[in-house]
Design a protein around this nucleic acid. Structure first.
Length: 151
DNA sequence: GCCAACGTTGGC
DNA sequence: GCCAACGTTGGC
């Protein structure tokens, strides 16, 4: 069982949007970065992930999700008219993957990036490293428990 | 909206 | 395989 952090811009897809989905479950699609994709492929059913709101007023962790389906083909890359179209990803040679996530817990308040950066315990956490842009990161158990204790 | 940091592309 | 040019991310 492993832990992760997954970023989404709330004006594109927020934790409230996930809450509205049937079964509070939705495919996590549109990841177009190889490192992030590879992390998704390492995910197993019942792994947990923090939901992180990025590129917004109050950037930070807003809740917890569960991986309910491990990586499979992200066919949004085939949709010519869609946001996530990638001409180099074909049905014969699909390039991108997605997983299905289910909402587990919505925090009553955001654990902001500012909060996280202030913690000595998280000095090694990839999220708070300078210049970090990865949209999916592994979180180790110690970090997970510590962050969760901040709620 | 700015811009630093990083990833990707493509010419050579 | 190098690296300049370009595109994207994301905090501020």
């Amino acid at each position: 069982m492993r832990f992760w952090l997954m970023k989404s811009e709330p004006n594109v897809f927020s934790i409230d949007d996930l809450e509205q989905c049937p079964n509070q479950t939705e495919p996590w699609e549109g990841v177009r970065n190889y490192q992030a994709r590879n992390f998704m492929r390492e995910m197993e059913q019942s792994d947990l992930a923090f939901f992180y709101h990025s590129n917004c007023k109050e950037a930070g962790i807003v809740g917890v999700m569960k991986i309910v389906k491990s990586a499979y083909i992200d066919d949004s890359s085939f949709d010519e008219n869609g946001l996530y179209f990638d001409a180099k990803s074909t049905v014969e040679k699909p390039r991108w993957s997605r997983v299905d996530v289910q909402l587990v817990e919505k925090f009553t308040h955001t654990i902001t990036l500012q909060d996280l950066k202030a913690k000595v315990e998280l000095a090694d956490f990839q999220l708070v490293q300078r210049g970090n842009r990865l949209s999916i990161l592994p979180v180790n158990a110690i970090q997970w428990n510590f962050i969760h204790s901040l709620t």
